[in-house]
């Protein structure tokens, strides 16, 4: 069939077009909302309970059954970190500071050496979870956080020893959870010299 000349002219100009404008409106609103409410900085927290003068009664009972806890302590001094247990008989190490690659003539804490030392200690005492910090008054907060960081968790490149994995499995069964804490090195951080003068 032939069309009338007038209708032929009309059909040429008819094009199907999606109306994108309302969709664009919605998207712009959404994007601006997300941009406004977005956190620019991811924030993390490190738990440190205040030291208690006496442990709870249950804990003391448990302590008597097993070997006494290590009470692994880091004494953070100006140019070195001392790592020892409470008597100094089972673990006793000294980690001297190294030269700071960023600032000439200044020293920085040797965090890799500290991490390695803590890995060794964890292998020998897989049940230990607590790290007591005794920093000197002049230690900056920034260094303190990096030292805490190197002591709390295994790093991605570390191989977790079998003893630690066994202990983590045991803990999971005891606590009846499904969370396997196999990345924990010494996650419980306590500042040991808050109360001392």
């Amino acid at each position: 069939m032939f069309r009338k000349p007038s209708s032929r002219r009309k059909s040429e100009s008819q094009e199907v077009q999606l109306n994108l404008v309302p969709m664009l409106d919605a998207l712009v609103t959404l994007v601006s909302f997300l941009l406004m409410t977005m956190g620019y900085m991811a924030i993390a927290v490190i738990d440190t309970p205040a030291p208690m003068l006496a442990a709870p009664a249950e804990q003391i009972k448990e302590m008597k059954k097993e070997e006494p806890p290590l009470q692994l302590t880091l004494e953070i001094q100006a140019e070195r970190i001392l790592v020892h247990d409470w008597t100094g008989s089972r673990e006793n190490h000294m980690i001297p500071s190294k030269d700071d690659p960023a600032k000439l003539g200044e020293k920085t804490y040797d965090l890799e050496a500290l991490h390695q030392r803590l890995l060794d200690i964890k292998k020998r005492h897989p049940k230990e979870r607590q790290l007591i910090l005794k920093p000197e008054p002049g230690v900056p907060y920034d260094s303190l956080i990096s030292i805490i960081d190197s002591g709390r968790f295994f790093e991605k490149t570390d191989t977790v020893p079998q003893e630690v994995l066994d202990e983590a499995n045991k803990r999971m069964l005891e606590k009846k959870t499904t969370i396997l804490e196999d990345k924990d090195l010494f996650p419980e951080i306590v500042f040991g010299n808050i109360l001392s003068t």
Partner: peptide
């Protein structure tokens, strides 16, 4: 804070 019975401290850091 410990004397005022605030016994759990959480140190705020920026996530690395």
């Amino acid at each position: 804070a410990a004397a005022a019975e605030f016994r759990i401290f959480k140190l705020i850091t920026a996530r690395k």
